[in-house]
Write a protein that binds this DNA or RNA. Sequence first.
RNA 1: GGAGAAUUGGCAGAGUGGUCGAAUGCGGCAGUCUUGAAAACUGUUGAGGGUCACACCUCCGGGGGUUCGAAUCCCUCAUUCUCCGCCA
Length: 423
Amino acid sequence: MLQVAFIRENKELVVEALAKRNINAVEMINDVLTFDEDRKRLQTELDNTLAESNSLSKEIGNLYKSGDAQKANALKEKTSILKETSKDLSDLLNTKVEALNQLLYKIPNVPHSSVPKGNSEEDNEEIYKEGDIPTLHDGALPHWELAKKYDIIDFELGNKITGAGFPVYKGKGARLQRALIAYFLDKNTAAGYTEYQLPLMVNEASGFGTGQLPDKEGQMYHVTEDNLYLIPTAEVPGTNIFRDVVLSESELPVGVTGYTPCFRREAGSYGAHVRGLNRLHQFDKVEIIRVEHPSNSYKAFDGMIDHVKDILKELKLPYRILRLCGGDTSFAAALTFDFEVFSTAQDRWLEISSVSNFETFQANRLKLRFKNSEGKNELAHTLNGSSLALPRVLAGILENYQTEDGIVIPEVLQPYTGFKIIN
RNA sequence: GGAGAAUUGGCAGAGUGGUCGAAUGCGGCAGUCUUGAAAACUGUUGAGGGUCACACCUCCGGGGGUUCGAAUCCCUCAUUCUCCGCCA
């Protein structure tokens, strides 16, 4: 969430920037500022009342000590009024703070100056493209047909065991998945990220810390018995490593990588574009997360982009990078670049990575700070990105690498798979 | 799942109703001394709100209660440790 002080000092900028998300924030921003003024006023009133009652209590204590019980008892009566006043004030204050917070939770992050205005993916800007789109032989198939033909992914079996969106990988398909995970983790750790194995369920506080709660409750599977949520991405447990943490400046930057399955309810998504591996309820992903000094976070962002580029280049997959427009940038992000791989047989681009800088938006919720050179606690910047999401990379490989003799395994993966072709 | 003990500042650890935001030690920072370092000595060292700055307010695992007054008493939840049960 945004900081009230930031909103107060940058009112115009906030309104202008949020307009890029097609949000008219004037009223919300004004409410925030008014609520905060009210909050301050009530807080001061309450503080004064408490101060008075504190000093009375002290006086009563002294009177008892000097044996003047009568005077003390007389003073006690005065405190009951103060007590009532402070109770009322603190109720009012709590209501006001709650209302202010509810407002703040609804305000998305302020987009970076480079983010274009726009409503939907139509308005995203393609900023980079690399790799040749292969010409496929006659009779080339989409990945779900290839999966069946070579018996490497069984969607029907997943339907039986669990339901739609929970595919079963088998044989060389399962091995290829494992190879991709190992390859991605190796690339990330070589780039300085520390590998973590994280919990696949998180509590409410964690869901709140990264911004999934309260707004996107419906996206996550909720285990009500224990009030835990299945993670929709490793970003949630991975970023919450740093919840309520004060780092020293010398500890920055921090890099975390982890492989986890991800669970998404994807309520209301049906149709041809969710076929096969395109959209699932359970999928595998390797994530990278960074905690950065505010002055370095955009440089770090570029570094993450280069890192993902490097992986796709090694895999020799045709891809492009999009700068997301305001309307398509997620709630908590200030800047997001999406990577898309061209899925030749489907003749469309598939999103395989999303790299975002959240600036202080998550850190503010997480209370993730570092001690700056002046010895003051300052909010850090958080970033994350996929490197990479497995199913669509797999779809891209199957479709782009298919030949009449079978599916060729990209060279960098062969040491991990132990085979060169699926046939 | 059952029984018992615990949870205090970066860490260790005192504090069982008022003068405690909290002794002491370690660590951190600054200084004295030193060619430099170490040692020694001196000072300083939690967070949030509020203020031009003070004042002042809040926080001793979370929430609630008793009391004029709570780190200290009560209730409740969470976590940790020990014993028992179960178990990959």
